[in-house]
């Protein structure tokens, strides 16, 4: 079985990401163990809650450098596949208006801004994900592709080429997924998106194998 390290930095519900990966056949470990993370074929950075506390918790767990290095190598295409989820996607960028003083990992350029006032926040619903590139993660996804979102802030990527999927919520181009090399991240929660989410995680697992 393919070993996937789900970075454990003590926030919220990390179990569901691990369980969903197990469900699609991964040997998924919720871990902060550097050796185990080094041995993994793929790395997952989940995230729930606010941006600043997540960055702080990642640092407190001693995982900031490891996350940065793994994500950077993946972005360059010569590392292991890496998947950020929700705040785990936002953390890959430079920062967030949610916690302006907190530094993101800065693997990808851009920052998160508040969703428009014209819609309820958080976006807490299923929405259609429009895959703008032929992402490997989107293989075998139905059209329309529904996924579950929970967020009030959304990434505004500096480079359009990093955006792999969008959804419409208050504005038409909310970043729903990003991709560079074998670095992927989703604003939605694949581990909470039933069949479609499990299929996406299966695609990620296949990329790791």
């Amino acid at each position: 079985m393919t070993l996937i390290a789900v970075l454990d930095y003590g926030i919220g519900n990390l179990r569901s990401a691990q369980k969903a990966l197990e469900h699609v056949g991964a040997d998924a470990r919720l871990t902060a163990d550097h050796g185990l993370i080094a041995d993994a074929a793929g790395v997952v950075l989940p995230g729930v809650g606010a941006f600043g506390p997540c960055m702080d918790a990642l640092g407190d767990a001693g995982l900031r450098d490891i996350a940065y290095e793994a994500a950077s190598a993946a972005a360059e295409g010569n590392g292991r596949p890496f998947l950020g989820v929700c705040v785990g996607m936002q953390m890959l960028f430079d920062g967030s208006d949610e916690t302006p003083d907190a530094q993101g990992l800065g693997v990808l350029p851009g920052r998160s801004t508040l969703l428009p006032d014209s819609v309820k926040r958080p976006q807490m619903q299923w929405n259609v994900v429009d895959w703008t590139t032929g992402s490997r993660l989107a293989e075998a996804q139905p059209d329309p592709c529904w996924m579950y979102f929970v967020h009030s802030f959304a990434v505004v990527a500096s480079q359009d080429s990093d955006v792999a999927a969008t959804c419409s919520y208050g504005r038409p181009d909310v970043a729903a997924a990003v991709e560079r090399g074998v670095l992927w991240a989703t604003q939605f929660h694949p581990e909470k998106s039933s069949r479609n989410g499990l299929a996406l995680l299966d695609n990620f697992l296949n990329a790791c194998a």
Binding site: G12, V48, G49, A50, P122, V150, S152
Partner: peptide, 8 residues
């Protein structure tokens, strides 16, 4: 909310 986020 501050421990786990307003969303939960």
């Amino acid at each position: 909310a501050s421990e786990f986020g307003t969303q939960c």
